[in-house]
Computed example of a mutant assay.
Amino acid sequence: MTAEHQIQNDIRVALSSRGCTIFRANVGKVKMENGRWFDTGLPKGFPDLCGFRKSDGKMIFIEVKNERGRLRADQKQFAEFIEQYPVIYGVCRSVADAIKLIE
């Protein structure tokens, strides 16, 4: 089974060569040395990758899953929210899925 971070990296490289700028959205919490929690500030369910298509400036949001991965409830909620806007959103399990999404 392919690790999701490897699929993310492969997608970033492939889409970059196809006229897109794609960033990895690091999300989560970590406990700091002083005992306080640091939160990235992105909303729960925010996709793994985001960026834009240079040809028209259209925003891209990609949730990356491996062959067996499933969307969590907060990821489904984000998908429902973002799909009401004129952006590109999709769940991709491979580079081929991501290329299809942006074309």
Rank of each mutant, 00 (worst) to 15 (best):
N66K: 02
T2H: 09
I22F: 06
P43C: 13
I99P: 00
L49C: 05
M1T: 12
V64N: 03
M32A: 12
G35E: 09
G57N: 11
I60M: 07
Q6H: 08
E80R: 15
Q8G: 03
T21V: 15
K65Y: 11
R18V: 07
Q77C: 05
T40I: 04
I82R: 08
D56C: 15
M32I: 06
I102K: 00
T2C: 07
R93W: 02
I102R: 00
Q75S: 14
M1S: 14
N66Q: 01
K65V: 09
F38L: 10
D74Q: 14
P43T: 14
G19V: 11
D39W: 10
Q75H: 10
S17A: 13
C92E: 04
E83H: 08
D97S: 09
K100Y: 07
D10S: 15
G28H: 08
F23N: 06
L42A: 07
Q8T: 05
T40W: 11
V87S: 04
K54V: 10
L15D: 00
A98C: 09
V27M: 08
Y85S: 05
Q75I: 08
P47M: 12
N66R: 04
I22A: 07
D48N: 13
L42R: 01
S55R: 15
V30W: 11
E67K: 13
A14Y: 03
Q6R: 12
E33M: 13
R18M: 09
V27W: 04
R36I: 02
L15T: 01
G45W: 06
W37C: 04
Q77G: 06
S16Q: 06
I62A: 04
E4F: 05
E67S: 13
Q77R: 15
Y89N: 02
D10L: 12
N66G: 07
E80I: 09
E4Y: 05
P43W: 09
L101P: 00
R53M: 03
Y89C: 01
C20A: 14
K58Y: 05
A79D: 09
F23V: 06
P43K: 10
A98I: 02
S55Q: 15
A96H: 10
V30T: 14
E4N: 03
G57T: 11
A3E: 13
I7H: 01
R24C: 07
A25S: 10
L42D: 02
L42M: 10
G51P: 00
F81T: 10
A98R: 00
D10Y: 06
R18Q: 11
E63C: 04
V87I: 15
Q77P: 00
D48H: 04
R53F: 08
F23D: 01
D48K: 04
R72G: 07
N34L: 08
G45A: 09
G69H: 08
K76R: 15
H5F: 13
V13G: 01
C20Y: 01
I102P: 00
Q75D: 12
E33D: 12
S17F: 06
R36A: 13
A14H: 03
N66P: 01
E63A: 03
G41A: 08
C92Q: 02
D48M: 05
F81A: 12
M1D: 12
F38T: 01
F46Y: 14
I22S: 03
G45H: 06
S94I: 03
G51W: 00
D48Q: 04
K31A: 13
R12K: 14
M1L: 12
F46M: 11
T40F: 13
A98N: 03
I102Y: 01
N9G: 11
V13A: 13
V27P: 00
